[in-house]
Lab assay of single mutants.
Amino acid sequence: MTEYKLVVVGAGGVGKSALTIQLIQNHFVDEYDPTIEDSYRKQVVIDGETCLLDILDTAGQEEYSAMRDQYMRTGEGFLCVFAINNTKSFEDIHHYREQIKRVKDSEDVPMVLVGNKCDLPSRTVDTKQAQDLARSYGIPFIETSAKTRQGVDDAFYTLVREIRKHKEKMSKDGKKKKKKSKTKCVIM
């Protein structure tokens, strides 16, 4: 069974824990209790493949930012979460993405942009803004509501699919490099 290491990042209060708990335990946590770091595991079937999701729910508070490099190193894919009623959390996505790329030393890291709290009427981040940002990053965008469960499975499952595509691409690139290195030079 394939294991996928997913990391949920975003500013404090955007609903990272609520999304994760909704996926794992099928219930909505409405009281806000700032996370330092929590880890969850769940076995699911995605596109006919049974897999184990190892999900790291991270601290959004700035005082825990020193811990970010460590979990970013171990993560295979990242859910970059903002709240649709919090423009600052949307603007912060850029910083999370840049930090992930720096730590992973790669421009090509599996990510999904997630606009959470889409059940709320007080939207300050337009869907088109988020779609445009995701398009500019070359990553999928999904709106979710941890409260109603809308888009929750889709967000995590899409990230797994992005990781699969990335692994497939990397193995193809690896095979191309191996083929090239088999060419021999004969000096007579």
Results as ranks from 00 to 15, higher is better:
Gln150Tyr: 13
Gln131Met: 08
Gly151Lys: 10
Thr127Tyr: 10
Asp173Phe: 01
Phe156Ile: 13
Lys172Thr: 08
Met170Glu: 04
Val125Tyr: 13
Ser181Lys: 02
His166Pro: 03
Ala134Ser: 04
Thr158Trp: 04
Ala130Arg: 02
Lys178Gly: 14
Arg164Pro: 00
Asp154Phe: 07
Glu143Leu: 03
Lys175Phe: 02
Met188Asp: 15
Lys128Ala: 13
Ala130Phe: 15
Arg149Met: 14
Lys178Ser: 14
Thr144Asn: 09
Arg135Trp: 05
Ala134His: 01
Ala155Ser: 04
Val152Tyr: 12
Asp132Asn: 09
Gly151His: 03
Lys172Phe: 10
Glu162Ser: 03
Leu133Arg: 06
Lys176Thr: 12
Ala146Met: 11
Val160Trp: 07
Lys172Ile: 10
Lys176Arg: 11
Gly174Glu: 08
Asp126Ile: 10
Lys165Ala: 08
Val186Ala: 14
Tyr137Arg: 04
Asp132Gly: 07
Thr127Trp: 10
Arg161Val: 01
Asp154Val: 07
Ser145Pro: 00
Gln129Phe: 02
Gln131Ala: 14
Val152Asp: 08
Ile142Val: 01
Ser181Gly: 10
Gln129Cys: 03
Leu159Glu: 01
Ile139Met: 14
Ile142Cys: 00
Val125Trp: 06
Arg135Asp: 10
Arg164Val: 15
Gln129Tyr: 05
Arg149Tyr: 07
Ala130Tyr: 15
Asp126Phe: 10
Val160Ser: 03
Lys180Val: 04
Leu133Ala: 10
Lys177Cys: 11
Leu133Val: 07
Glu162His: 08
Thr158Lys: 04
Asp132Met: 08
Lys178Glu: 15
His166Ala: 05
Leu159Pro: 01
Asp132His: 05
Gly151Ala: 15
Thr183Ser: 15
Ile142Ser: 01
Gln131Val: 07
Asp153Ile: 14
Ala134Phe: 07
Lys128Phe: 10
Lys177Phe: 02
Tyr137Pro: 01
Glu143Gly: 00
Phe156Ala: 06
Lys182Phe: 00
Ile139Trp: 01
Lys172Ala: 06
Lys128Asn: 12
Pro140Ile: 02
Leu133Cys: 09
Gln131Cys: 06
Gly151Ser: 03
Arg149Glu: 13
Val152Pro: 04
Leu159Ile: 13
Thr144Ser: 06
Ala155Tyr: 00
Arg135His: 06
Cys185Pro: 15
Gly138Ala: 06
Gln131Gly: 06
Leu133Pro: 02
Thr158Ala: 07
Val186Asp: 15
Arg135Asn: 09
Asp154Tyr: 08
Lys175Val: 03
Thr127Lys: 09
Gln129Met: 11
Ala134Gly: 05
Ile139Gln: 08
Ser136Leu: 08
Tyr137Asn: 08
Thr183His: 13
Lys175Gly: 09
Lys175Arg: 07
Lys184Val: 00
Thr127Pro: 08
Val152Met: 13
Lys176Ala: 08
Ser145Val: 07
Asp153Gly: 12
Asp153Asn: 11
Thr144Val: 03
Asp153Lys: 14
Ala134Leu: 02
Val125His: 05
Asp132Val: 05
Arg149Gly: 15
Ser145Trp: 10
Ala155Gln: 00
Gln129Val: 10
Asp173Arg: 03
Lys177Trp: 07
Tyr137Phe: 15
Thr127Ala: 11
Arg164Met: 05
Lys184Cys: 01
Leu133Asn: 03
Ile187Trp: 10
Lys177Pro: 10
Met170Ala: 02
Thr144Phe: 00
Met170Arg: 01
Lys178Asp: 14
Ser136Arg: 09
Arg164Glu: 12
Met188Ala: 15
Arg135Gly: 08
Lys178Arg: 04
Ala130Lys: 04
Tyr137Lys: 07
Leu133Lys: 07
Thr148Cys: 09
Thr127Met: 12
Lys176Cys: 12
Gln131Ile: 10
Glu162Met: 11
Lys169Ser: 05
Asp154Met: 09
Asp132Cys: 06
Ile139Tyr: 03
Arg135Gln: 11
Ser181Arg: 02
Cys185Asp: 15
Met170Trp: 02
Val125Met: 02
Gly174Phe: 01
Lys175Ser: 08
Asp126Leu: 06
Lys184Ile: 00
Lys165Asp: 06
Thr183Tyr: 01
Lys172Pro: 06
Val125Leu: 05
Lys178Trp: 08
Val160His: 13
Cys185Gly: 15
Lys176Trp: 09
Asp153Tyr: 12
Lys178Asn: 13
Val125Phe: 11
Tyr137Cys: 12
Lys176Asp: 07
Lys167Phe: 04
Ser136Thr: 03
Val186Thr: 15
Thr158Asp: 14
Ala130Asn: 08
Asp126Cys: 08
Leu159Asn: 00
Arg161Leu: 01
Lys176Val: 00
Glu162Leu: 05
Lys165Leu: 02
Asp153Gln: 13
Glu162Asp: 04
Ala134Cys: 05
Lys167Ala: 08
Val125Arg: 08
Arg164Gly: 12
Ser136Gly: 10
Asp153Val: 14
Val160Ala: 08
Asp153Thr: 13
Lys169Asp: 10
Gln129Thr: 07
Lys165Cys: 06
Leu159Gly: 02
Lys167Cys: 04
Lys184Trp: 00
Ile142Trp: 01
Val186Asn: 15
Ser136Val: 04
Leu159Tyr: 00
Ala155Trp: 02
Lys128Leu: 12
Asp154Gly: 09
Lys172Tyr: 06
Lys165Asn: 09
His166Asn: 14
Lys167Ser: 08
His166Ser: 10
Asp173Gly: 05
Met170Thr: 00
Leu133Tyr: 07
Phe141Arg: 01
Ile142His: 02
Asp154Ile: 09
Val152Gln: 05
Lys175Met: 13
Thr127Val: 13
Lys178Phe: 05
Met188Gln: 15
Ser145Thr: 05
Asp154Ala: 10
Ala130Ser: 09
Glu162Gln: 10
Ala155Asp: 00
Leu159Val: 08
Ala155Leu: 09
Val160Lys: 10
Ile139Lys: 05
Lys177His: 02
Gly151Ile: 07
Glu143Cys: 04
Ser136Met: 07
Ala130Trp: 14
Glu143Phe: 00
Glu168Gly: 02
Thr183Ile: 01
Tyr157Cys: 13
Tyr137Ile: 11
Lys176Gly: 12
Tyr157Gly: 13
Leu159Lys: 02
Asp173Val: 05
Arg164Trp: 13
Lys175Thr: 07
Lys182Leu: 02
Ser136Glu: 08
Val152His: 09
Lys128Asp: 10
Lys128Arg: 09
Phe141Ser: 00
Val186Arg: 04
Val152Ile: 13
Thr144Lys: 00
Thr158His: 07
Leu133Thr: 05
Asp154Leu: 10
